[in-house]
């Protein structure tokens, strides 16, 4: 059961450059921390796959184990776990998130970079 779930998560983060596991959807975040990452990604003008964990309790619990990370939201870029809200905010402010996107060859809106 767990393997099936992990395979599904692995598939999602492999098939999409940027994946955000969040509470609510990108259009309607249902948690301030999830909302903050959506705002950062919107500022950067990147497209991302939003996965609403509130709609799937298996994923909600499974992703915590998968990432060894106890909280939601969780951001993945090119299959790599970047972090939760605090890390993403800090990286964005420091320009490290932009650097990561550059390194991974993902285009983003540079004019709005912090």
């Amino acid at each position: 059961m767990q393997n099936v779930l992990f395979d599904r998560i692995q598939k999602d983060i492999s098939e999409n450059d940027i994946v955000l596991f969040m509470k609510g959807s990108a259009a309607f975040p249902q948690c301030g921390f999830s909302s903050l990452i959506v705002q950062v990604l919107s500022q950067l003008g990147v497209t991302f796959r939003d996965i609403n964990v509130l709609e799937d309790n298996d994923v909600r619990e499974g992703i915590k184990e998968f990432s060894n990370w106890p909280t939601i939201p969780q951001l993945y870029v090119k299959g790599e776990f970047v972090g939760g809200c605090d890390i993403v905010r800090e990286m964005y402010t420091e320009g490290e998130l932009q650097q990561l996107l550059d390194d991974k060859g993902i285009a983003y809106n540079k004019s709005d970079a912090a």
């Binding site: 060894n68 990370w69 106890p70 909280t71 776990f81 970047v82 972090g83 605090d86 890390i87 800090e90």
Partner: peptide, 16 residues
């Protein structure tokens, strides 16, 4: 940072 925060979560022993 991820590893650092994981250390913090581990120190909290599931209380997070």
């Amino acid at each position: 940072r991820v590893q650092q925060h994981q250390m913090v979560y581990e120190a909290l022993q599931g209380k997070m």
